[in-house]
Amino acid sequence: MRRFLISSIGLFFWALSLGAGLWLPSAVGQGARDVDLYLEDPAQEERARQISDQLRCVVCQSQSINGSNAFLARDMRNLVRERVAAGDSDEEIFAFFVDRYGEGVLMKPNAKGINKLLWSAPLILLLLGGGLAIMFVRQQATQPITPPAPLDDEEQDLLRAALEEEKGVEKTTITRSEPEPSKRVAKEQTGTHKAEKNSNTP
């Protein structure tokens, strides 16, 4: 318990140092000429980046404009920056892009019309699955255990043989002077016997 506490404190400091390594100042780009027109204000640039993450590069496949080398993606990124600098709200910027490129430009589909089904599907599935699972668990918990099928003749014989052998083994262990090792050997023997039985009549 105490050792565990000590080790968790150690882990804590390990994570602290890890966290320190992660600490990043978000800085404004420098040296940019004709690629991305970074915004002066880091907060604005960060906002532009987050918006860019949610817009699809329309000439690429499943890539956001933030993660694409395409020229169009760069132009679209700069367009986002322009709108951010002009003081548009996120909604206005998305609406602007939807007007230009259609609904497909949004990486996060809106929740209108049939898309309502898409957005609520995980919740519906979860409630449905959870409900059914709880019903099942409750129902089986109250059910009496169905007894296993009775052994057939062959199995009865095998069982009897195994039991007899075990009895014989018990006797020998009593008469022997070194009980421990011989008992172990005997156990192993019966073990393999059972195994054979299992593999024959699973």
């Binding site: 993450d53 699809r56 499943s62 956001s64 609904e103 949004l106 990486m107 589909p109 049939i114 898409l118």
Partner: peptide, 24 residues
Amino acid sequence: MLGTFWPTIAELTSGRKVSIGPPF
């Protein structure tokens, strides 16, 4: 699965072209 096929489903049912990306 639903997210993967949704663009197809949406287009077939309502003719809308939607994208399902990481934010969703």
